[in-house]
């Protein structure tokens, strides 16, 4: 411990970690302070709280039909999460509980499809939605995201820990397969569901590219799209944008601080 080189190394580590922590937190601070400043002050680098907070909030709320925008965001993220969890957990359960050689091949195919980039799907998907005449609808946003291979894989991995004796016992009690899934599997696996909920909700809430393509009118916009629209003008009003950025970040930030451990578990598990 008294070794001077080790001491310097330790000091250097603390210095770098402190710097990293500062750089990581600073934009959050900047966002909060910025929400209280005028746009001119923000791009002039004013780092102290100002008096324009209320003004910015009013302007932000009036820039779009905010009730509708929030409704869109919560509906798409919420419904998308419920559907994804249902479809993906059923598939994970199906692949793990009922093994067959053919289904294993199908599962291998899914894993290969994991590396298909979304950029390669967006044009045909857009044209498909146009043919189905559902451009600018909630379905168009939701349908391509429901069957997430990542989440299917996550549930299959988690299902390996599901005690099969429970299923056998339930069968002896005369439960049908869907009843076992609903009344035995789902309650037992609730922590898996919780972790997946966080990951899927966050991904849906923050989704930008696909909603940008298929949602075209202002009354269909999500919060993410609304903030992006405000930022896209030639003279963006940064004070108003900061209010929007706070609104867009707050739900995931709250989830993170309330369920930190599960959050990290989900993140590690969803892609492991």
């Amino acid at each position: 411990m008294s070794n001077p080189i080790a001491l310097i190394g330790r000091a250097g580590t603390y210095l770098l970690l402190s710097l990293a922590a500062f750089v990581s937190i600073f934009p959050f601070f900047w966002m909060v302070v910025g929400a209280s400043n005028t746009s001119a002050d923000i791009i002039r680098g004013k780092g102290t709280p100002g008096g324009a907070l209320w003004d910015n909030i009013v302007k932000f709320v009036n820039s779009f039909d905010m009730v509708r925008v929030l409704f869109n965001s919560f509906l798409l993220a919420g419904l998308g999460t419920v559907l994804t969890l249902l479809v993906a957990s059923m598939a994970g359960y199906g692949f793990e509980m009922f093994r067959s050689r053919f289904r294993e091949k199908v599962f291998g195919g899914l894993l290969l499809m994991l590396s298909i980039p979304f950029a390669a799907l967006m044009i045909p998907l857009f044209m498909l939605m146009a043919q189905l005449k559902i451009i600018n609808t909630y379905q168009a946003v939701l349908l391509p995201s429901i069957a997430s291979i990542f989440i299917i894989f996550y549930f299959r991995q988690a299902t390996k820990a599901f005690p099969s004796e429970l299923r056998d016992a339930a069968k002896i009690d005369g439960l049908k397969e869907w009843q076992i899934f609903l009344y035995v599997y789902m309650p037992v696996m609730r922590s898996t569901y919780a972790a997946a909920t966080i990951i899927v909700f966050m991904a849906n809430w923050n989704s930008y590219l696909w909603p940008l393509i298929v949602l075209q009118t202002n009354e269909m916009k999500t919060l993410t799209l609304a903030v992006a629209t405000l930022a896209a003008g030639y003279t963006p009003d940064f004070g108003v944008i900061m209010v929007g950025a706070i609104a867009a970040t707050l739900p995931t930030l709250i989830i993170f601080f309330l369920l930190q451990r599960r959050f990290v578990e989900g993140m590690l598990g969803a892609v492991k």
Binding site: L17, A20, A21, S24, I25, P27, F28, W30, M31, G34, I42, I43, R44, G45, G47, M202, W205, N206, Y208, T224, V227, A228, L230, A231, P236, F238, I241, M242, G244, A245, A248, T249, T252, L253, F256, Q260, V264
Partner: peptide
């Protein structure tokens, strides 16, 4: 927690924040 915090933000939100930080007279 501090170093992990950025990945809680939405891509859109942090992009616009960075845009203001790196404005010509910015911070």
């Amino acid at each position: 927690t501090a170093i992990f915090l950025p990945c809680v933000t939405s891509l859109v939100a942090y992009s616009v924040i960075f845009k203001s930080i790196f404005a010509i007279d910015g911070i």
